[in-house]
Write a protein that binds this DNA or RNA. Structure first.
Length: 640
RNA sequence: GCCGACGUAGCUCAAUGGUAGAGCAACCGCCUUGUAAGCGGUUGGUUACGGGUCCGAUUCCCGUCGUCGGCUCCA
């Protein structure tokens, strides 16, 4: 279960048949320029399967039962072991154990083969309803189960953690010698599980009930499918994802690095990575300018009093670095840009005529992240947000939200993302701001989502205390979801900093403030982009767009001439002048995922042509320079 | 932070309680090449860092740093 595992989900991909999966990947492999084309394909084929809820499927029961079978095998090996919980999850199952020693990979192999035996013995799963007393007697040596029984007896909780009115019925499921407190459902008998379609994946630590104050248990993750073929497809899919790992590609393409000597979670952008970032930022700036944003720049540190006013020292201190002492004053490295933007707003009296104001900045912030959660470019300690703050009047607010959502979609689409999923988080119990404000803001967010035809889920009560928000996730080329954008109202900071504008009535009014990041952070976005394109960036973002490949030394001069002409057209070109064979040069350019390779030899020199080869493997062959430039410019303009 | 695994040349990986090895990369040379690796040679490591055990540690032990997999999926 890597980063996409249960959490960020292959939810939809899961529903694809393996054959289709294979075809999707195949398409991606064949057609790096039109990665998004696989989406429609996906849509067409999955509708029927989506209708059945995963929880109701046989596959879910197979996985849940596999968890029980695994627990039996583990307890046979460790009779004094304690069992916790063992649910089916996306793509598989897990079970948490409290064992006398740490599990090794050899243990896993042993447990796995014992599981196959148990499955082949074809035991029936038997459900039994029982009282809490009976359950306590059965699980008297199982403290975690006893705790669960207590919890269930006192009412239990639903998915959102709210207490249930009706006490759930206690039940056990037994197969062979293993009895587990369990709601079910399970397969009728283990014979329904294909022993060769089950595999244990890895062991990981997991806190009892996810609470870091509780004991650390050993969690074994496994996966199970209807057939061995599906298992193989799944494993193969994991391999595919591994190949796209941005950390691997980042090294192979020399895009970025992270050094112990510099510090964990701090990114070094190498020239090629920096080029891509610069291209992305230039585009970003151009679009923001055109859309009516004003750019601002703000410092990296600010006085403690600023962060006290903003409230960050109150509610965000765990994520901030220790203060820097300057002339008896404490300064903090900024974890957010908002207080600075607010001060720019507050620098002078604002009129209702000035609004809306949109302050944008690629603001570099530093946040303390626990060492265990750092991950390549995706979770870092220093990063640059593509941040902006909107200030507007109440009457402008709905239009402003429409604007920012559509602008956001425009930017994301420009980078090749075409599928979106939104999450609308509404007012939690504890919050600041007036109820009416919340309602208006939520209505505006929801209405904009409707108008933009973005599928969304409402996370009722899931908003921050200071305002409702939309989080936008994109789906990448292999169906994984990544959260990039966020659009958040803030009713807190305008109060704390006493933001006002003078209305038509000559009276001060409180503006609405919206905080938004579209790409999220440049670091994280770059990571997602790398994985989405598997390193084969669209031409407009490719650090090197054209590699000139002279066949022999006598073609070098011509290659340089061609390079000069292409550079005049604004293309990023390199000549491979190493004393290597053409095949080796092509291979290297291919592995660097350079969009166009131009082979020049005697024939090309004679006719003033170039022989084009694409990184897709297509080989259009000789053409005039003008034709090639036109072709490249078209690809660049279309951002493919 | 916590649990577990891991840290050997720029990269990918091997080996051993007794002087560390391969491929690729880099460098040098030969070849002058037609769509995914031409051939030969050279260089390269205080085995992450610090401490301990030992005649001897890269290997065993402890600590530090870092990397990887996890730490909401509810019986």
């Amino acid at each position: 279960m890597a980063l996409f595992g249960a959490k960020s989900g292959w939810n939809r991909v899961r529903n694809l048949s393996p054959q289709n999966w294979a075809r999707v990947i195949f398409l991606i492999a064949l057609r790096p320029f039109s990665i998004s084309s696989c989406f429609c394909f996906e849509e067409d084929t999955m509708d029927e399967k989506v209708k059945e809820r995963y929880e109701d499927s046989l596959l879910y029961r197979i996985r849940h039962s596999s968890a029980h079978i695994m627990a039996q095998a583990v307890l046979e090996k460790f009779p004094t072991g304690k069992v916790a919980i063992g649910p089916a999850i996306d793509d598989g199952f897990y079970y948490d154990f409290d064992l006398p020693r740490a599990l090794t990979p050899e243990d896993l192999a042993e447990i796995e083969s014992r599981m196959r035996e148990i499955i082949r013995e074809d035991h029936a799963f038997q459900r039994q309803v029982l009282s809490a007393e009976q359950a306590r007697a059965i699980f008297q040596d199982q403290p975690y189960k006893l705790e669960l029984i207590d919890g269930l007896e006192s009412g239990g909780y639903d998915e959102d953690g709210n207490p249930l009115f009706e006490k759930p019925e206690l039940s056990t499921y037994q197969h062979a010698s293993f009895v587990d407190l369990c709601r079910g459902p399970h397969v009728e008998h283990t014979g329904l599980i294909n022993p060769d379609a089950v595999k244990l994946m890895n062991v990981a630590g997991a806190y009892w009930r996810g609470d870091e104050r509780r004991p650390m248990l050993q969690r074994i993750y496994g996966t199970a499918w209807y057939s061995p073929q599906e298992l193989q497809e799944y494993l193969w899919k994991l391999e595919e994802a591994k190949k796209r790992d941005h950390r691997k590609i980042g090294r192979e393409l020399d895009l970025f690095s992270v050094k112990d000597e510099v510090g964990a979670g701090l990114i070094l952008w190498h020239p090629k990575g920096a080029k891509i970032r610069m291209l992305a930022e230039n585009f970003w700036e151009k679009e923001h300018e055109a859309a009516g944003y004003d750019f601002v720049y703000t410092p990296h540190i600010g006085k403690s009093s600023l962060w006290e006013t903003s409230g960050h020292l109150g509610f965000y201190k765990e994520n901030m670095y220790a203060p820097i002492e300057i002339e008896g004053q404490q300064y903090f490295l900024k974890p957010m840009n908002c207080p600075f933007h607010i001060h720019i707003y507050n620098d002078h009296t604002r009129s209702y005529r000035d609004l809306p104001l949109r302050f944008a900045e690629k603001g570099t912030v530093y946040r303390y992240e626990r060492s265990g959660v750092l991950h390549g470019l995706l979770r870092v300690r220093g990063f640059t947000q593509d941040d902006a703050h909107h200030f507007c009047r109440a009457d402008q607010m709905p239009d402003e939200i429409d604007f920012v959502l559509n602008f956001c979609l425009h930017i994301l689409r420009s980078f090749g993302f075409s599928e979106f999923q939104a999450y609308l988080s509404t007012k939690p119990e504890k919050s600041v701001g007036e109820l009416q404000q919340w309602q208006d803001a939520q209505d505006a967010l929801q209405a904009s989502l409707e108008r933009a035809h973005i599928p969304y889920e409402v996370d009722a009560g899931g908003g921050a205390f200071y305002g409702p928000k939309i989080d936008l996730k994109i789906k990448d080329a292999i169906g994984r979801e990544w959260q990039l954008s966020t659009i958040q109202f803030d009713f807190n900071l305008p109060e704390r900093f006493d933001l006002t504008y003078v209305g038509e009535d000559g009276q001060p009014h409180r503006p609405y403030m919206v905080h938004r990041a579209l790409l999220g952070s440049m670091e994280r976005f770059f990571g997602v982009l790398i994985e989405h394109y598997a390193g084969a960036f669209p031409v407009w973002l490719s650090p090197v767009q054209v590699k000139l490949i002279p066949i022999a030394d006598r073609h070098l001069e011509y290659a340089e001439q061609v390079k000069a002409q292409l550079k005049k057209s604004g293309l990023r070109v390199e000549v491979d002048d190493r004393p290597e064979r053409m095949n080796a040069k092509i291979r290297d350019a291919q592995m660097q995922k350079i969009p166009y390779m131009l082979v020049v030899g005697d024939k090309e020199m004679e006719n003033g042509q170039v022989a084009l080869r694409m990184r897709s493997g297509e080989n259009p062959g000789p053409m005039s320079l003008a034709d090639f430039i036109a072709l490249a410019e078209k690809d660049i303009a279309e951002k493919i």
